[in-house]
Design a protein around this nucleic acid. Structure first.
Lengths: 171, 171
DNA sequence: TTGGAAAGTCAACATAGCTGACATAAAATC
DNA sequence: GATTTTATGTCAGCTATGTTGACTTTCCAA
């Protein structure tokens, strides 16, 4: 296989020579890659009768247990009404537990139940496997570049939020 | 700003030491970046009363004028009923033209009208600007890595299709 | 103490996926 | 020439996930 794919977007010295065509190809790569990225979780979710919105909720509740609905809204970037429908079904099905805040009783703190944690694990296992395979195929330097471009592509607010979330990452 | 973001996923020599946590952070980066990636086109589309489905159709018709419905179906990975609804509205609104095939009269060949081309330009300008900004911020080596990981993340079928589409890219 | 803001819920609607069934026309095959 | 396959389009109906608007409960501060 061609190991230099994408390298024609660069000159040897490191200066960027990107044609409009090449930039659009980057967009297409993003589109097709995102499809691959969601394919495995989508299959698992379909079996459980859930969709991507449920996946996102489960994922972020799993990573930050006790988070409030409002917090989740800011991360997911949807309306509270839309999120509420998703949360309601997850709570009804016993995957998520909602506890009224002790300090502020308006707030609901969200936790995964054991069942919810099991689905979370199954989904994140699949996603990790895909990421790991892609990283291995692309090589270590590629991973650094990948992360840099992704972060630069985020809206500034999201980038800030993302980097705040990343704090705990360093071993 | 921290220029080494993401570098903690690597040791100096280039071997991968990726924890489960770090792989999941890669997934989150993908999620947030995709949101940024679609944000500008989404705003433009909202003004015209269209959605992402219309964007995708316009994009690929613009890049491969004369493509058939079947071709588009394979690229977009949706059902013909779903695509048909989108195409019908684009044709009714005069953005896309559908011509009966000369050789095979069952086929419809799709083209952008001048109006369609104008919207396509406006959308791709926005998307290119975002890609260019991200590439500039991340640097040239990062762009190579970005493309490599994205390609490795695609499903094999899509990767093949994508690379076939890329042929014309090399000036 | 009261009035506004914040958190969450319920109702109703729109978009864009999906499946299934069916129609038409053209091409390919027997 | 008759039959089958292919390409496309359409109708009906379902689901997931967005939206806005109106409402309740709770908190806090003037």
């Amino acid at each position: 296989m061609d190991d230099r794919s994408g390298s024609d977007a660069l000159d040897g010295g490191g200066l960027l020579f990107l044609t409009d065509e090449q930039l659009l190809k980057g967009s297409e790569a993003m589109f097709f890659a995102y499809r691959g990225f969601t394919a495995d979780p989508d299959r698992i979710l379909a079996d459980s009768g859930y969709g991507r919105a449920h996946h996102r909720a489960i994922h972020f509740i799993g990573r930050t247990p006790g988070t409030t609905v409002n917090n989740l809204l800011a991360i997911l970037g949807v309306t509270k009404q839309s999120l509420n429908r998703v949360l309601r079904s997850l709570i009804e099905d016993g995957l998520v537990e909602s506890r009224v805040g002790t300090k502020d009783k308006r707030e609901r703190h969200l936790f995964l139940t054991d069942t919810g944690d099991a689905l979370d694990r199954s989904l994140s296992d699949a996603q990790r496997a895909r990421m790991r395979a892609a990283y291995s195929a692309a090589g270590p330097e590629a991973v650094q570049g990948f992360r840099k471009v992704l972060e630069a592509m985020m809206d500034p607010d999201m980038k800030r939020r993302f980097n705040r979330m990343r704090e705990g990452e360093k071993r």
